[in-house]
Design a protein around this nucleic acid. Sequence first.
DNA 1: CGTTTTTTTGAGTACAGTCAAATTAGGTGG
DNA 2: CCACCTAATTTGACTGTACTCAAAAAAACG
Lengths: 256, 256
Amino acid sequence: MEQHHRPDQTNSTTAPANPLIRKLEQRDTLAPEEKQALDKAMARGRIKEFRTKEEMVREHDEPSFSTLLLDGWAARYKSLSDGRRQMLAFHISGDFVDLHAFPLKVQDHSVVALTPCKVVLVPHEALNEITENFPHLTRLLWVSTLIDGAIVREWLLSTGRRSAIEHVANLMCETYTRLQAIGLAKADEFNFPLTQAELGDALGISTVHVNRVLQDLRKEGLITWKGDRIEINDWDRLCALADFDPTYLHLDQRPR
Amino acid sequence: MEQHHRPDQTNSTTAPANPLIRKLEQRDTLAPEEKQALDKAMARGRIKEFRTKEEMVREHDEPSFSTLLLDGWAARYKSLSDGRRQMLAFHISGDFVDLHAFPLKVQDHSVVALTPCKVVLVPHEALNEITENFPHLTRLLWVSTLIDGAIVREWLLSTGRRSAIEHVANLMCETYTRLQAIGLAKADEFNFPLTQAELGDALGISTVHVNRVLQDLRKEGLITWKGDRIEINDWDRLCALADFDPTYLHLDQRPR
DNA sequence: CGTTTTTTTGAGTACAGTCAAATTAGGTGG
DNA sequence: CCACCTAATTTGACTGTACTCAAAAAAACG
């Protein structure tokens, strides 16, 4: 548990094993010294593993590091004092689950592991050195928190104005698109390791209603969900039902 | 309309007339050269006015400037293709309504003026110079977009898991607290220039239901809404009903 | 003072929630 | 590999919150 992260030493012109670099390069090119700075920052972080359902980040904490997800699925959430819970985001490999707490200092929500997770705890001090010396890299880290924000806005639109079935459809389109972008989706199938109860907490509806809506989607021939795999049976009709416009995912290359 | 913004030349130890500086100083101290850089950036921007209900920022636009609100109320929103609309945020004096589009380049939602608004259009080029030369200031601009994000997360919690009456209560607590922080609220009263239909679009409920929930709140002796003024009749019970925890507003001083 | 917008009320409906129980699936140890 | 245990899914019956449509009343605006 006290081991340290070794940066990837392979040829940097091939796809990087460092999932953060891979993610940032999706958006913009990185100079060699910028990649080096990221590798160096991550190398200063401790590797940590979480079990399913374990709390990774707690509301009101003031950690001195930010948590970069290397492997597994995690979810941000907030709870009301009587226990009602709302998921705020899903995170996968390459995502910082709490980069916002680097500038903000205080956690305003919690993060839970949805599957076994492997993370690296990047010291805020290391991030601070990046912001002092690499303005372009700083903007890219800023971008990554902004995309998180854009996704939450789409979730708010879904929760406020989409019907339950449209909401599920939209989340499926979003998740498939995100996984596709980092090569974690097959042609028409992707991993979705949530329970229906957890999905309900993400959609803001009850478990029972999730179940009924999924049956409707299956009957309509749009998606099939078996175990932790979701198969998309009719992408076009799913997108139409969802009113899906991927602009908010900001997946296009946008060089500086 | 082609006039330029003149930075405030008064003694910088008193409350600044520049609402952006005032807002950032709420969070952290600014060095004189940082204030100067902000004033200079704003001085390069064109002043513009919008009428009530006028669109200030359009989804999919790629503007070369960001819109800083000097006066009035504005709201971010997204719409579904059949017209259903969800508000995503309210903005008041000192807020950038689209700072995210500086790093992201593309607008993923629109912004509408809720009242007559006066803004300054700060060129992205000017912001870019700030990020190249003032890392601390960059972090503060980053913080401001992160607080926007934290508020949207609270709205998502409200929309997904709070009942309509709890949701209204929470929004009233949030709005009062934000206005209070910049000196725009009286002891137990504040300006709220929305129609019930607009409030419904913010809450994700119908206009009719807004009206009925407001009657319940009035009957309970919690708030009174007359014209564009809301009076808080019982702050403690309102907070309790709302399950209000202002952590997510990040209003405390957090020096670097 | 008339026009338009906003708020309010009423009646009927529908989407989604709750509670409880049955069924199925998944994981573990013998 | 099977039996058992637990967790997850599915079903049924009933309830309730919030929606729609329509119209009346009240406010705001010029």
